[in-house]
Every structure is written in C-alpha cells, then in structure tokens.
Lab assay of single mutants.
Amino acid sequence: LVRYRTISKIPQITLNFVDLKGDPFLASPTSDREIIAPKIKERTHNVTEKVTQVLSLGADVLPEYKLQAPRIHRWTILHYSPFKAVWDWLILLLVIYTAVFTPYSAAFLLKETEEGPPATECGYACQPLAVVDLIVDIMFIVDILINFRTTYVNANEEVVSHPGRIAVHYFKGWFLIDMVAAIPFDLLIFGSGSEELIGLLKTARLLRLVRVARKLDRYSEYGAAVLFLLMCTFALIAHWLACIWYAIGNMEQPHMDSRIGWLHNLGDQIGKPYNSSGLGGPSIKDKYVTALYFTFSSLTSVGFGNVSPNTNSEKIFSICVMLIGSLMYASIFGNVSAIIQRLYSGTARYHTQMLRVREFIRFHQIPNPLRQRLEEYFQHAWSYTNGIDMNAVLKGFPECLQADICLHLNRSLLQHCKPFRGATKGCLRALAMKFKTTHAPPGDTLVHAGDLLTALYFISRGSIEILRGDVVVAILGKNDIFGEPLNLYARPGKSNGDVRALTYCDLHKIHR
C-alpha cells in the first residue's frame, strides 16, 4: 500500500512540481520508500527539464536528425535550378540546329562534286560548318556529364541527390541515346576521305529529338503553341524528305545512260545542264529549293507536275512521300480545326451564355430598361472574369491554397485601402477568403433606401454616388468604403439613402 501511494504521487509531482519531503505519510521509514524516492526525484528532475525545454521552444527539443539540413553532394545540380533551365534551352537550340543542318550536310555532301578544292585539302579548321559541328559534339558530351550530376524525382516524389543513384537512373534511361548522339564521328573518321560515311553517321544526332519531343509535351495545353509546333514538325519532315529526294537524284545521276532524272530535267529547265562528264548542272541553292518544293507539294497532295519522278527509285520514294503525307494530314492537320476551336472556345461560351440571357429575357418578357441593365451587367461581368467562376475553380483546392490565391487576387485593395494598413498577414488572409466580388454598370442602383444592410462594401474600381431623395450626399471612388460596420450592432440596419454607380464599378463586399 505504501508503495502504491508513493507511485500514485508521481503525476502530481510531474505537473505541480511538489516535493515529496513535505508529505508526512511518505516520510515513514520503510525500505521500499527509501529505494523508490531517489528514482522519483530523478524522474521528476528529468520531466521538469523536458517541460522547461518545451515551454522555452528551444531548438534542442527536436531530434538531432530533424535539425540537420538535407545534404547535397558537391557538384550536384538541382533539376529545378536556373542554371539547369538555361542549359536545357541551350541544348534545345543545338538539337534544332542539328535537326536542320545534319540531314542537309549528309545529303548535299554525298558524292558532291561542286567546283573547288576537296575538304581534305583545305583542312578541318577552315570549314565553318565542321567547326560548328565540333562545338555541338562537345556541348552534347558536356550535357552527358551534367546529367550524371543532376537530381531527379523518383516514384515516391522524392528528390534524389545521391550521385550513385543518379548515375544508375541515367544509365537506365537516356544515357545510350545521348551517348550515340554525342559521338564525334568527324574526329574519329577525319582524314579518311569518307565524307559520305561521316554525313550518314552524323544523322545519329537526330535521336535527341525524342527527348525534345517529350520536353515539349508540357506545352500541349496551349493551343497556339501546339499549332506552332505542328507546323514546325511538318516543315521539318518536309526538309528531311527534300534532303533524301536530292540524295536519290544525286546518286543516280552519274550512272544513268539517259538523262531522265529530276536533276537533269531541272538543269535543262533553268539552262544549267550537266555536261557529258557529269559536272556542271544547277547550283546547290536551286537543287535544295526545288527538292523542298517537290516534297511540300507531295505532302499537301497538290502535285503540280513541273517536278516529277521519272526513275524507279524516284517513283518509289514519291509513293512513300504520299503515304507520309496522308498520315500527316490525319495526325496534324486533322487537329488544326480542334485547336482553332479551342482557341476561340471563350468567344463561343460568351455567345452561348448571351443567347441564354436573351432567351430568358424573351421568355419572361423583361421590360426594355431592365433588359438593357441585365445585358450590360452580363457584358461587364464577362469582360472582368472571362466567364470563369472563381468560386467553382477554387473549390477543388485546399483552404490554405485558397487563402493564398484570394490574398493575391485582392492584393491591390488590401495594400491601398486604409482600414487594412497594419493588419497582420493572417488577418488579411482571413479577410480575403470572405470577400465576394460584384460588378455594376453605370446607372445601376446597388442599394435602395430602406434596404437591409448586411454587408460592408469596398470599391475596387469606378465611382458611385450616394443620394437622399434627389440630393447627392457624397461621391465615392476607388478604395472608399460604404455599408454597415460589421458586428457593431446586434441587428442589421437599414439604408438611409440610395447608392448608384456612376461608372463601371468593381466592388468587394463582406457579409455579416
């Protein structure tokens, strides 16, 4: 019993810090008490220290592992850092350059016999395009090294910054494609005289377009951006097909006994025919423009016929181009109408809503002055909100995010209106959640004399007048207030005048 009563005193000691020596009952000389009392004092002292730490809000209350900052290894790049964003855009520009100039170089340097010394005699450094290609190869190699040090988000939505895990993730992902696209074939085969082989191998750079397509997928929600990307894709495919079309004609031209190829026909049409040795002929500019003209006309199913396939190889390629053109029509131009419709969806919704308003007016036989006010209010409210119901949009977000959005939407009023000066951010967040926005066209009466005042109004834009009878008592403008002081009276009061809008007004109100 003594032991039980001794232990039962522990909660009292913990909360009230009572010393055991003052209790005459606990001072009985028993061996059990002498053993338990020192333990009680020690526990009391420890609990006292913990309570003191909690009340003082000291940093040592938290466990040590929670006080440590997340460790980022040296030379690790955050995937959302500004440097990584700028670097990704730079790589994107280099990939676009590669997609345009690599097929052009591979096709127009394929057994090209233009006048001038061969590239091997001039030297590697004197070729501007080769120098640019070398810079692109170096940048792609540097990009691989950067990807080995860039964080990523795993399946659990955690940012991984450990170098080993980053390397394994990159090896399992895009490393092989990036490595093949970054191989400097110019340096590996330079001086061997195989410019045709170098041009063909350099087309491996186009593998990076797969990554670019995935990154550009984030802009699919913007109709104008999608339309622009589709047109660029169409032009890029036409450019690639033009390079292939020229390569076919250029390879067949020296081996044909009869002059029936499209390059021969082009030379005869523009007065620059090929001679018996295969030299001469149109310039590279004429060849490229004509090839691009043929691919565009074939892809769009126009086909004027002034550039036509004559050999079997050219006919087979033309059939493939027609098939590609039909697929592009289905996948690209078939979506253009939907994209344009999405661009004008706001206008369509406006006309639909206006039609419903006019049908309501016609069905209920609203008189002319009231009908005009109804239409003007709808037009003004639509121009202010673009038909978007803010309350319906915010309803799907958590309250903390709703408060931040409301604070942002009402920031101008909260910053410049005098009653809100000096208020804490928590108070402003709470008030912003209570605001209701209303609009009024010129001549609209917001409050009639004798109406119950259940709200306090803040003028965000425009001006109003307060009338008693036919006498203008006051004219209020931006950041002015009218209405009933909230919670100042037990019952809502009545208006002693009319409140009429002089201009288009936007008002925020808080109800009782």
Rank of each mutant, 00 (worst) to 15 (best):
H439K: 01
F83S: 08
V447Q: 01
I138A: 04
M139C: 04
P117I: 14
L414A: 02
R373F: 01
F108H: 01
N250I: 14
K272F: 01
S105E: 04
W89Q: 01
H264E: 03
A167Q: 01
V168N: 09
Y288T: 01
W89K: 01
L230K: 01
T437L: 12
L94C: 15
N154K: 08
I332G: 07
S161N: 07
A392R: 10
F420L: 08
I72E: 15
C122G: 01
G278Y: 01
L323M: 15
Y288I: 01
L201S: 01
G305N: 01
T295S: 14
G396T: 13
T300W: 01
H364L: 04
I270A: 01
G346W: 03
P309G: 01
L110Q: 15
L187Y: 10
T98V: 10
T311N: 01
Y274I: 03
A182K: 01
Y329W: 03
R349W: 09
L241G: 01
L187C: 08
L216Y: 05
G123R: 15
C122R: 01
D186L: 09
V131L: 14
T120D: 01
W75T: 04
Y377R: 05
K418H: 09
P442Y: 01
Y246K: 01
W245S: 01
S301C: 05
F435T: 06
V180H: 01
T352D: 11
G281Y: 03
E359S: 08
A107D: 01
A125D: 01
A423S: 03
R259I: 03
Y219I: 11
R362A: 07
Q415P: 04
C243M: 01
F420Y: 01
H264T: 03
F397M: 06
Y377C: 11
T113Q: 12
D186T: 13
V226T: 13
V159T: 05
T203K: 01
V210C: 09
I135K: 01
A449M: 06
Q353Y: 03
Y219L: 13
G443A: 03
G261N: 08
G443N: 10
A381T: 13
S194A: 10
M390G: 05
F140C: 01
K272R: 03
C427F: 04
I166H: 01
T352I: 07
S326W: 07
L209D: 01
L201G: 01
Y222P: 12
E158T: 10
R373C: 03
I144V: 11
L374Y: 01
T352C: 09
L109F: 08
S313D: 05
S345N: 10
H364V: 02
V100R: 01
V210M: 09
Y97Q: 01
S192W: 14
R421Q: 13
T102S: 01
F108A: 01
Y293G: 01
G346P: 12
I198H: 06
L145F: 10
H439E: 05
T102A: 07
G267N: 01
